[in-house]
């Protein structure tokens, strides 16, 4: 216990960050903020993957985080393109108003 940090602390930190993201998705109406909260959840999971990969001295976890970053970048590019298209057509990105998927 002298030099290190218990893995439980990392699990707690990741759980707290993930749940802040979940609350953000549920409590906000702006679609861009919801996107950002999803990014926050992805990062909480990434942090836990890196912590466990360091714990077990296995590089696969960190490679997984690298791939998650690539997929998140692709997801954000497509998602923001869709959102800007929605804003151009409906002049709003309030998800409560967009929930019916029709005009």
């Amino acid at each position: 216990m002298l030099n290190g940090i218990p893995i439980n602390f990392y699990i707690m930190l990741s759980a707290v960050l993930f749940i802040i993201g979940v609350v953000g998705v549920m409590a906000r109406r702006n679609a861009i903020i919801i996107f950002m909260c999803i990014e926050l959840m992805l990062n909480a999971v990434n942090l836990l993957l890196v912590a466990f990969s360091t714990l077990h001295n296995d590089a696969s976890g960190q490679v997984f985080v690298f791939f998650i970053m690539a997929v998140a970048a692709a997801e954000v590019a497509v998602g923001l393109a869709i959102l800007s298209m929605v804003y151009r057509n409906f002049k709003t990105i309030d998800i409560d108003l967009l929930s019916r998927l029709k005009n």
Binding site: G4, I5, I7, A51, T54
Partner: peptide
């Protein structure tokens, strides 16, 4: 959960 596992910085 097990408390003793340590991440060595």
């Amino acid at each position: 959960a097990e408390q003793l596992q340590i991440v060595q910085g």
